[in-house]
């Protein structure tokens, strides 16, 4: 996928999400870079390392411990809900293997916001 179509996709997602912009005020202008930064954090081993367990578009040699990440906007009601899941998945499922990225400060709050932007775009 070229960068321009990616941007287009993000832009149209932005239009679709207009109703939720109040929740995420930074989405339109700085959205694309947030998504790119989020992708970097998600793919980097010493940061999110999401690929250890999740198949994600654009990622290589992903694990299969956890569900592939796609169609996220049909799986989560809002970015806030997605963020809560990344921050501490044990709230919904005490037996989950997923590390509590927020509760244990594996990622900073700002980093999680970026990852949310990226994952939400999948």
């Amino acid at each position: 996928m070229t960068i321009s179509t990616k941007l287009l996709g993000i832009a149209s997602a932005g239009v679709l999400l207009a109703g939720q912009l109040a929740l995420a005020p930074v989405a339109s202008a700085s959205g694309p870079s947030m998504v790119e930064e989020g992708k970097n954090i998600a793919f980097t081993r010493k940061k999110g390392n999401c690929l250890a367990c999740h198949v994600m578009a654009g990622g290589k040699a992903a694990g299969n411990i956890a569900p592939p990440l796609g169609a996220m906007q049909s799986r989560f009601k809002s970015k806030a809900e997605l963020k809560a899941q990344i921050a501490d998945a044990t709230v919904k499922n005490p037996e989950t293997s997923m590390p509590p990225f927020g509760r244990h400060k594996i990622l900073s709050d700002a980093e999680i916001d970026k990852v949310v932007e990226f994952v939400w775009s999948l």
Binding site: A52, C53, A61, A62, G63, N64, I65, E95, S97
Partner: peptide, 13 residues
């Protein structure tokens, strides 16, 4: 977590 719950799954490759 790794060797019971997820035994047989792949972590990365």
């Amino acid at each position: 977590n790794c060797h019971l719950q997820n035994a047989g799954m792949n972590i990365r490759a």
